[in-house]
Design a protein around this nucleic acid. Structure first.
Lengths: 114, 114
DNA sequence: GACACGTATCGACGTTCGTCGATATATTGA
DNA sequence: TCAATATATCGACGAACGTCGATACGTGTC
């Protein structure tokens, strides 16, 4: 209810000394955003597209009603994983790659990579 | 319902060409496992401990009833993120680091690191 | 074998979530 | 200004989830 806008900045690596209740909640919120098949596919579409995608191009392939897709987009935006851009009467969405990278870093124990 | 035992092996990077419905569901299932503050803190404990942890040491700090903790452990085991080991009448749990690493890799677009 | 103790399962409850039809809002074009 | 179209919001419904008390199962101890 408080800072859904950017939980990205307040979550910490899973192997950090001790997670505060707030950090745990923020981290969970982030993972929960990708805890639905529809949202996973949406993020997948945005990731492969590489450029902003019109929401109207997502309604069909997902097999979901228009309000449902809109609902999922709002969740992703609230989680800070996706950015919304208005172009005329169309809504374009793009992936916030640094946010997804943060998510990956959270799950990455000990930074084994590199 | 089908292969909850190891969704790890059947999920794919978010920027893969096109995610099948099964892959999307498996990926979502994996993220959902970390979509609860209690489970985030459990995984955090296991990650920092570095060695198997007795579930009896988790009941207190989490502030949850014993059946609830047991319930969360089962979810983590089902997701393939955690391993259970019986030592006498105690149950020890340890993090499956490769599984968590897979999770991180899924979220890691394009393998920018390295 | 009987008991104590740690853990898992069961059943129930309230809350949250995903979904959709109906409707409201906003932007474009005539 | 008015109609058409794209998107968001609202309200409702069923399903899934987190939580806990009561209870069953296993293991070690006497």
């Amino acid at each position: 209810m408080s800072s859904l806008a950017e939980p990205i900045t307040c979550c910490a690596p899973l192997d950090q000394a001790v997670l505060s209740a707030e950090e745990a909640e923020a981290t969970a919120e982030l993972f929960k955003a990708l805890g639905d098949p529809a949202r996973v596919r949406i993020v997948n579409c945005l990731a492969t597209a590489g450029e902003p995608v019109c929401i109207c191009d997502l309604n069909g392939p997902l097999g979901l009603a228009q309000p449902t897709v809109s609902h999922h987009m709002k969740k992703l935006v609230d989680a800070g994983l996706v950015e919304r851009e208005q172009r005329g009467k169309w809504a374009y969405f793009s992936l916030k790659r640094d946010a997804v990278a943060t998510l990956a870093a959270v799950a990455d124990l000990k930074g084994v990579c590199c």
